[in-house]
């Protein structure tokens, strides 16, 4: 079957199988930032945005994407660089395999709750597993990024 949706700002039509999930389709479309770390919706590696909300692309039937707006890290490169610098400054990315999914969820958090406390950050990102870092450095980096976002927003308001 054929579905049409918007992928990273571009309207596309994709040929899909009825039983395929969004993760498989995105990989086929070359969105290689989207990773798979389990098959049981536990790891958060495949997180993308669907109509502005973070979803696990392995748990979304591709057919349900018809008419929706899908964003992957490929579509948020400027933002990825900003958050990426915060993470790299801490050495918090380590192997990096979980990074794109975690970053997509951080972007969703930044929209929903930019003033998140450490506990709120941990709770929001609880579904984004990382086996390398021990999480504490990522928490520091995310806090720094959120602070940067707030500062930028306040700057805009003043201007």
């Amino acid at each position: 079957m054929n579905v049409e949706f918007t992928l990273n700002g571009r309207k596309i039509a994709a040929e899909i199988d009825a039983d395929e999930n969004l993760y498989a389709v995105l990989r086929r479309l070359g969105m290689y930032s989207v990773k798979c770390g389990c098959e049981t919706t536990n790891c958060g590696l495949c997180t993308v945005h669907m109509n502005g909300k973070a979803v696990l692309s392995c748990a979304v039937p591709a057919a349900r994407c018809a008419g929706s707006v899908i964003t992957t890290l490929e579509g948020l490169q400027d933002e990825a660089k900003k958050l990426g610098e915060c993470l790299a400054g801490e050495g918090a990315e380590q192997c990096g395999f979980c990074a794109p999914g975690m970053m997509m969820n951080v972007f969703a958090l930044a929209k929903e709750n930019p003033c998140a406390t450490d506990e709120e950050i941990d709770a929001y990102l609880a579904g984004n597993l990382c086996r390398c870092s021990g999480y504490v450095s990522q928490r520091r980096a995310i806090r720094k990024y959120l602070a940067m976002k707030i500062e930028a927003a306040e700057g805009e308001v003043r201007a």
Partner: peptide, 21 residues
């Protein structure tokens, strides 16, 4: 020195650098 990892920019922008990519 606490220099960032050399591959950090690629990893943190989701570039296709792993086996399956």
């Amino acid at each position: 020195k606490p220099v960032p990892k050399k591959d950090a920019p690629a990893l943190l922008t989701g570039k296709p650098v792993y086996v399956a990519d």
